[in-house]
Design a protein around this nucleic acid. Sequence first.
DNA 1: CTTATTTTGTACAATTCGGTACAAGTGCTT
DNA 2: AAGCACTTGTACCGAATTGTACAAAATAAG
Lengths: 205, 205
Amino acid sequence: MNANKIPDIIIGRLPVYLRALQHMQDMGLKTTSSQELGERVGISAAQIRKDISQFGEFGKQGTGYSIEYLIKQLREILKVDRIWDMVIVGAGDMGHAVANYQGFSDRGFSIVAIFDNDKSKVGQKIGQFTIEDSETMVNRIKSLDVKIAMLSVPASAAQAVADQLMQAGVRAILNYAPISLNVPNNVKVQYIDPSTHLQRMTYYL
Amino acid sequence: MNANKIPDIIIGRLPVYLRALQHMQDMGLKTTSSQELGERVGISAAQIRKDISQFGEFGKQGTGYSIEYLIKQLREILKVDRIWDMVIVGAGDMGHAVANYQGFSDRGFSIVAIFDNDKSKVGQKIGQFTIEDSETMVNRIKSLDVKIAMLSVPASAAQAVADQLMQAGVRAILNYAPISLNVPNNVKVQYIDPSTHLQRMTYYL
DNA sequence: CTTATTTTGTACAATTCGGTACAAGTGCTT
DNA sequence: AAGCACTTGTACCGAATTGTACAAAATAAG
């Protein structure tokens, strides 16, 4: 792996490649080519080859890539060759749906705690989790040494909660609240706002 | 407004600007500058000016932009100066959460029907909606003339359902299933896969 | 009325990104 | 063992995107 600075945009495509490769592996395939992978994910073969070659020579001329090996490499590059603990803040409908989602463990993530500031929710169960009080959140996250949080609180509370999360040592936030967060450079945010995603498409209708 | 082809990447930023502007309006602000807006959304002021100026001269030197006017313009550009009907396919946890989400109507969208292929769910209520049978989906969507769908079925079913949706005339799909969809050029897809979003951040941790 | 301050829209420059094309390696067939 | 089909990794180039800088317009202050 080069010590070069890899562009964000490339890093952003790797999880898509990884997801497609795992799907192919589940279907029993052993090898693939940049051509085939490209058709699956809707990206040109050359782009995929160039992206992957940023990190090493993982393919073999004439035969393509070993799916198992490429998955292993991508998981290492993306640091999901391990399990990351996460917390959820906000136990509304979205918090519930995310907490019940079964798709995290296969992809490198595990929920370890859920918080809400509504005292009437505290103590209730979501699956195997018990909703904890937001007031205890910062210390709890510190003691669990959690670096990733999913934020599913109302927009009006999102920045304040994000500030608390950062104070607790969180470095990556998946933000379901429909508002842009202000964070320093060493904290990453990804946004999931269905209305924003939809508005990106209506222009073309 | 120029008839020029506007790059996707610019269209993608407009909903973020719009969301921030609506937030500012809710706070009672009347005008803003590219500087202020940029700080809010984490994009350079010059970038914002250039993006907006693609569509016309909406600002005034010395004072900036009227928030109300700019919102109006952006809503027209993005075609959310109207209400788009949408359907949800898949009434699992995520389908439920999306169906109960209250944030669509303010932003140009309205859910009109929910489908599932599980006969035991058909007829059950989610909020004011009754889950309908997938078998009736294509004709129902055609008769409702719906162009936008949210896809919250398992990955294994997603492509087949997407094909049905397109057959029914759907032109924009918000895909919650963790798989890349194969669609023709005249159909738009946006992806919401929390694991993929998370994997985009772990690289930097 | 004049001057200082703010802010837009855009010309120009720099950088980043993606596509094209191909040498070279691999395996298969004959 | 020679020829063929396939595929990678990369050099090169053009396109797309972003940053810099500033003229011009609007307002505010004195």
